[in-house]
Simulated scan of single mutants.
Amino acid sequence: MNIPTRRLLALVGAGLAFSLAACTTSTGAGSDGSASAAASDYKLPAAAQTVLDEAMKAPTWTPPKTSPKAAKGKFVVSIPCAEAAVGCARPGDAFLRAAKALGWRTQLIDPAGDPKKTQAALKQALQLGANGVWMPGGTVEAVGTDLLQQMRKAGVAMFTLGGRSQSLGPSAWSGIMNNDYGLSSPALAAYVAKDSGGKAKVLMVNDSEFPDVANGVKVFESKLGEYCPSCKISQRLDFSITDISTTLPSRVKAILQAHPDINYIYAPYDFAATQMSTALAQAGLAGKVKMVGADGNPQNIQAIKDGTQTVSYARPSELMGWVVADQMNRLFNGQPTINDAAGFQTEDYPTQLLDKSNLPTDVAKPWDAGIDYQSDFKKLWGVG
Rank of each mutant, 00 (worst) to 15 (best):
G296H: 03
D340Q: 04
K288W: 12
D362Q: 12
Y42V: 06
D295K: 00
G28S: 04
Y42T: 06
G129I: 04
L203C: 15
C88M: 01
K123W: 12
T246P: 05
G162K: 01
H259M: 02
T27Q: 03
G343I: 09
M328R: 03
K356I: 10
G198F: 02
L126M: 12
I338A: 11
L148A: 05
G370E: 03
V76R: 02
P63M: 01
L52P: 02
F210S: 12
R7D: 15
S40P: 04
M291E: 04
A46K: 10
A157D: 12
A99Q: 00
A258W: 10
G287F: 04
T351L: 03
G155M: 05
D212E: 12
Q166G: 14
L183Q: 04
Q107K: 15
S31T: 11
A279S: 14
A71F: 12
R105L: 08
D362T: 11
T247C: 06
S312C: 07
G198P: 01
F75G: 08
T278Y: 06
T139C: 09
S184V: 07
W134G: 05
K74H: 08
A98Y: 03
K116F: 09
S240V: 09
A29V: 06
P360W: 10
S34E: 09
L280E: 03
D376E: 13
G197N: 04
S174R: 02
D93H: 13
K65C: 07
D41N: 11
D53A: 15
A101F: 09
A47Y: 12
A272W: 07
A120Q: 08
N300A: 13
M177F: 14
M204A: 15
R90Q: 13
R251N: 15
T5E: 08
V156D: 01
L11E: 14
S240N: 09
P211L: 00
Y264P: 01
S230P: 03
T247M: 05
I304H: 00
L256W: 02
S78N: 15
C23V: 13
R315T: 14
G169M: 04
L353F: 11
A303N: 07
G197V: 03
I255D: 01
G163D: 00
A125N: 06
I244V: 15
A314M: 07
L319P: 01
M320F: 14
P360E: 06
